[in-house]
Nucleic acid binder design. Structure first.
Lengths: 208, 208, 208, 208
DNA sequence: AATGAATGAGAGTTCATTCAT
DNA sequence: TATGAATGAACTCTCATTCAT
C-alpha cells in the first residue's frame, strides 16, 4: 500500500506537502526531541491536518527517520570533502569553517542530531556504524598520515575530529546558553576567528 | 502544606527517599529527556510507588527542576575554582581536566543539562542568567587580564570557555557516537592527553 | 442522482466493476466481519480505488446489504426446491446434500451469513421475516404432512430444518476448527456420507 | 510491571472489577466480534471508565484472550466427562443434553467462540491444537471402540462430534434466526426432545 | 508514610467518507 | 469514470495527577 505510493512518482502536491511536513517536523523535533514532539505540533506548524500528515507518512517515527537520513548526508559532506591531495592545515581549517557554517545555517538539524545521540542513538545507530564509522576511519588514517609525514603537529586524529565536531556544533546545540552569555553580539563571526586560531595553533607543525 | 515539609526538618526516611527519587530520576531524565521520561519509569527505578513519589515532590517538573538546580552547583564548581592567583596555563589546564573528569564521573548530569539547553533552557534560563552569566563574566575578565598581561596567548575568553565545555562534555553527551567510532578502547585516557595538548598549544604564550 | 444510476441501464464497465467489488467484499466481510472489514481491504482486493468503490456503492453498508440480499436468494433455493410431489426421504436427503454442497462451494457466503446472524441480524432481520419465515412455515407444514401420513418418522419439522442447517453449514463456518481436528484429510466427502446416514436413520419410517 | 500486579494476590476490589469488566466484555464481544467491540462499549457496560479498564487489563486483546481461555475450560468439560465406563448411548445423549444446556445457559460464550472460529481462530488456534485436538482424538477413539464393539450403530466419530456441536450450539449462535422462525414459543424444551430423538435414532444399534 | 484505585487530558493512529479535479 | 487529497470522528492506549484509605 504505502509501497505503491512511493513507487509511483510523486505529484507536485505530494512533493510540496512532504516538504512542508518535514520542515515543520524538523522545527518541532529539534526543539522538543522525539518523544516531546507531537503530531499536533507538526500539524499546526505545517498547516496540515493530523490525518493528512499520516496520509504522507506512515507515522511519527517515519517522519523522524526520514529527517535523520536526509540530515546525515548533508552532515557528512564537509568531512567527505577533506582532500588527501590538499594542504593538510588548509584542508582541516576549511573543514572547521564549513562545519561552523553548518551550525549557523542548519542549527535545527544539528539539534535534531544531538537529541538522537543524547538518547543513545536508538534510531540512527545502524547508520552510524555503516556510514560514519568507515568514513571517519578513512579520514583519521589520512590525518595520521599527514602527522607521520610531519605536515601536521602530532595529534590523535579521532579526538581531533571529535573536538572539531564539539566546538562547531556547540554554537547550534547550546545556542540558548551561548546567547545568555554573549548577549546579542556577533557570535559566529567571532567564533570563526577563534576556531581558526585554535586549530591553527594546534595543528601547525613546529620545529622542535 | 508544602511549606510545612520544608519548614520542619526532614526525617531520615524523607532524606533517603528523596535521594532515591532524584537518583532514579537523573537516570531516566538523562536518557529520555524531560518529556520522554515517565513517572512510571522513575517509580520503578526508585523502588517507590508513583503516588509516593508525588508525596515527596509536587510533580514531575519539580523533580526535574530540583535535579537541574543540584546539578548546576556541582557543574560550576570547577570554574569557580579557577584561581586568579595561580599560574594561568596551569589553572586552565586543570580546569579542562576537571571538566573532563566530570564528564566521566557524571555523564548523566551532563546529558541532563544538555537536554535542557537543547530545548532552549525553558526551566533553567533564569538560573543561567542569575548565576552562570556573572560567573562567566568574571572568569572571562580574569582570562582577558592574563592575555593582556602576556601570560596567555591571545584568545577570546568566552569562546575559550565554550570550547572547553564543548570538548569535555562531548565525551558524555555524544557517548553513543564516540563508542561507535572508538570501539571499546580507552576513551577518557586518550582524551585527557589530547585535550591537554590541545589547550596547551592554544594558550601557551609564544614569543613572536 | 443515485436513482439515475439504477434508472439507466448499467454499462458493461459498471457491471464488471460492481461484480469485482462484491467479489472482493465477500472475501473481506466473510473473514473479518462487518466492522472488522475496511474499505481499504476491499479496494485492494478489488483493484479499484477507494473513492471509485464509493462511486458504485453509497457506502460500506450498502455493499454489505447488497451481498446479503444476493446471498439469500441462492441460500434458500435448495429449500424452495424441496418438492411436495417427491419422495419425502429422498427430497430431504437431497436437500441435505445440496446444502452441504453449498457449504463447500460457497463457504464465504455461509460465513457472511453466520456473521450477520451472530450479531443479531441487524441488517437482515426484515428479510428473514418477510422471506425466510413464510418459506420455512410452508416447508415445515409439508414435512409435518409427510410425518402425519407416516411417510417420515415423527419429527419436529422446524428443529429438523435447523439441524440440517447447523450440520451442513458447520463445515463452512467452523472450518478453522474442523481443519485442526481432521487435518488435511477429506472432510466434505466423509461428511456427506455421514449426514446422509444420519438423516436417513432419523427420518426413515420404522414399523413399530 | 503488569506481572507484579498479577503476582501479588488481588484485592477484593480487583476481583470485583475484573469480573465486571469480563462480564461486560463478554456481552460486547459476543455481539459485535473482536473488531466490532469497543472499549467504550465495555466501559459503559461495566460502569468503569475506559482508563480504569486499562488499569486492570493490558489492552483490548488481553480482555479477549482472557475470556476465550476461561471459556474453553467450561466449554470442554462436558466432553471430558463422557465416560468410557458408562453406557455408550446414555453417555452421548447426556453429552448432547449438557451441550444444549450450555447453549441455553451461556449463549454469549457460545457466540464469542463462534466469532473467533469464524474469523479463522486467530487467537485461539494454538489452544485448539494443544488442548482440543488431543481431547477429541481421545473421545473419537472411545466412540470408535463402542462402534466396533457393536454398542453403537456405525458412525464416523469425528463427524458425530461435529454434528453434536453444530446442532446444540446452533440455538445459541443462530438465536436471532431461530427466534424469527419459532416466535416466542419454547425453543430449548422442544429442541432437547428433538435432539434426544435424533441422536438416539442415529446411534442405537439395530439388528440387521 | 504509603499505596491501590481512578481519571481527564491528550497521544498516535485508523477509517468511512467527501472534495476537487 | 476515476483518483489523489483531505478530514471528522472514533479508536486504543498513555500518563501525570488525584482520591481514598
Amino acid at each position: 500500500m504505502t509501497e505503491l505510493k512511493s513507487a509511483k512518482k510523486p505529484t507536485r502536491i505530494q512533493i510540496r506537502n512532504r516538504k512542508r511536513i518535514l520542515e515543520a517536523a524538523l522545527e518541532v523535533f529539534a526543539q522538543h526531541g522525539y518523544r516531546g514532539a507531537t503530531l499536533d505540533q507538526i500539524a499546526e506548524a505545517s498547516g496540515l491536518s493530523k490525518p493528512n500528515i499520516l496520509y504522507y507518512f506512515t507515522g511519527k517515527e517515519e517522519i523522524h527517520v526520514t529527517l535523520l537520513n536526509k540530515l546525515m548526508d548533508a552532515w557528512l559532506a564537509p568531512l567527505r570533502e577533506v582532500d588527501a591531495a590538499g594542504d593538510p592545515l588548509a584542508e582541516i581549517l576549511t573543514y572547521v569553517q564549513r562545519k561552523l557554517e553548518m551550525s549557523r545555517e542548519f542549527p535545527r538539524e544539528s539539534r535534531l542530531f544531538a537529541n538522537e545521540i543524547l538518547q543513545g542513538a536508538p534510531r540512527i545507530a545502524p547508520h552510524l556504524e555503516a556510514v560514519l564509522r568507515p568514513l571517519v576511519a578513512d579520514k583519521a588514517a589520512l590525518i595520521q598520515g599527514w602527522v607521520d609525514a610531519g605536515r601536521l603537529a602530532p595529534v590523535d586524529p579521532h579526538h581531533l575530529i571529535f573536538s572539531i565536531w564539539a566546538t562547531t556544533q556547540h554554537y547550534a546545540d547550546f545556542d540558548a546558553q551561548v546567547r545568555v552569555l554573549m548577549g546579542d553580539g556577533p557570535v559566529f563571526e567571532t567564533a570563526e576567528a577563534f576556531l581558526d586560531t585554535l586549530f591553527r595553533r594546534v595543528l601547525e607543525p613546529r620545529p622542535d
